[in-house]
Design a protein around this nucleic acid. Sequence first.
DNA 1: TTGAAAGCGTTACCAG
DNA 2: CTGGTAACGCTTTCAA
Lengths: 339, 339
Amino acid sequence: MPSTIRDVAKIAEVSVATVSRVLNRSATVKEGTRQRVLKAIEECGFTYNAIARSLSTRKSVTIGVIVPAITNPVFAQSTKGIQDFANSCGYSIILGNSDYSSKMEDQLVEVFKEKRVEGIVLTCSDIRHEYIQRLKHSKLPFVLLYNIPFDKELNLVTIDNYKAAYEIVEHLIHLGHRRIGMIAGYFNMSDRSLVRSQGFKACLNEHGISFQQRDLIETDLTFEGGKRAMKTLLEVTPPLTGIFCSNDFIGMGAIKTIREKGLRIPGDISIAGFDDIEMASYFYPELTTIHQPAYQMGVKGAELLFKILSGEVEGPRQIILDHSLIVRNSCGPVNQLKQ
Amino acid sequence: MPSTIRDVAKIAEVSVATVSRVLNRSATVKEGTRQRVLKAIEECGFTYNAIARSLSTRKSVTIGVIVPAITNPVFAQSTKGIQDFANSCGYSIILGNSDYSSKMEDQLVEVFKEKRVEGIVLTCSDIRHEYIQRLKHSKLPFVLLYNIPFDKELNLVTIDNYKAAYEIVEHLIHLGHRRIGMIAGYFNMSDRSLVRSQGFKACLNEHGISFQQRDLIETDLTFEGGKRAMKTLLEVTPPLTGIFCSNDFIGMGAIKTIREKGLRIPGDISIAGFDDIEMASYFYPELTTIHQPAYQMGVKGAELLFKILSGEVEGPRQIILDHSLIVRNSCGPVNQLKQ
DNA sequence: TTGAAAGCGTTACCAG
DNA sequence: CTGGTAACGCTTTCAA
């Protein structure tokens, strides 16, 4: 029997309308009655019912957030960014993990719609999936994070994945590497991985290095995935001297395997990552990687969503944040003797 | 103008009550009308309004989750566990980050109450804070995760932090260490850190090693915090040969500092962590640490909460999960020569 | 400055 | 098996 504004009204001897006014800080309430109401609220231990308010105002004061895996620090960081921004606007976030499944994302979106979130910030597995089209044609505002801007009519905040991949692979080439492989995330789970692999191939190509299909492996975007994939790549001949990994987890997993085989990094093999999670600089060897501003990505995404909600921004907006190549020491000059 | 069950009713030529029945899978609807209603729903693009339903049923089908920092993989894992369990029950989770602040936790709880979450799973900074008492006396069910069972009337899922700390410190002692320091999280931000430090002190004491206040430093539960604290501990004389860290992040940060000073691990100094985040086994050197079942913690916490919600469980329940000492190679025998 | 009353979109009880 | 209708707890005109 949680009390309602009706109870408060009775105690304070005013109408529910007045109670509602003081609750909403409407200026048109005399200080005296205002105090009476406040006292009455104390008295009966009233707790505002946001659900009732939402039904009446058609505003849930909540946004939905969907990430592939909250356990990936990149997504944890951006979720934190979204959350901080949303909270500062008085909004809550309702969170969903998709485990890199478009189907799950679709389901989560449906639930969010029913719960009447005012907007969604999400990182989807495949921006070209049909449910994204459906979402686009619904009137629910949403902002994509990290995804590839294949569709110019979608709001999104991301980095230039193609360019970033190109740059880090070029770094390997400048170090003298010619036999460069890649461990990518499954393309159907991460359009970022697909595009990074394109940047990778383009870079090889433009430097006169022919790409071999067996030098690229798709795997899970995890330590374990990297570890497994590296075992396979170690069998390739002629041996690879540099590996570009779709994310830092994979890179660290690959390093684990290499080390277990008794090989040295970067002496025998150079490893490049992607994301620059905090751990990358504490790892041994420190990981050469692409920095992307994860927390900022979340903040910018939320900011864009709220601008759309407030009508401050109209058409689709595509924000490309800066990335940067972070040179550390998991990549070194190719070992000429070995070549 | 999203359509309502009223619109659906009109199209299908039935009453809203009937529409509601098919929406809720009530068996008492003739297949024919059921089909008509379903078709009508398609036709007008009806989306169920969960807010209205919540107001009517007084069930939000949502639980609140509060973590100190979603960017800590331990909490990310348990959040995932909570989420998976909640989703399987048809529930959503609304997430809040407290940044280890009791005040923020308190505020988040208030928002959650207004949003009428049906229960809360949280890791609080200080279980003895006043707001927890208030929460206890409200009728909102909640389950604490990771916290110290100082209050037997609270529902919680945790491990035996005291014992775990004791065990890992004893491991160091068995390796011959006598000069053992500790880097702990700030006690007012983490009651776990406080209790771990008690286990640490007790272990020293019972092994006839006197504890010196300057051998224990409180810091942030981050890489950076560990890095900083270790710089200070390196100045202590006689030098410490083993360091017990409140979590793996701190441990890795400490290792970074030690390595920068040109010292070897575990040759010169042994480092023990706590948590066994996945990274711990990929790190170099692999971290000796205490494993705690983070994902399982979340699952168990959610499970307990739902049991309370369904009335299946009555009184306060305190579940102590198993931890285990994971011996890797960041801790080794003390260097006798150095002693 | 305040009150009365009509919604907001469901559910659920009571009839039929 | 189906319909009518009063809640659910709040907001928001419209009047006074």
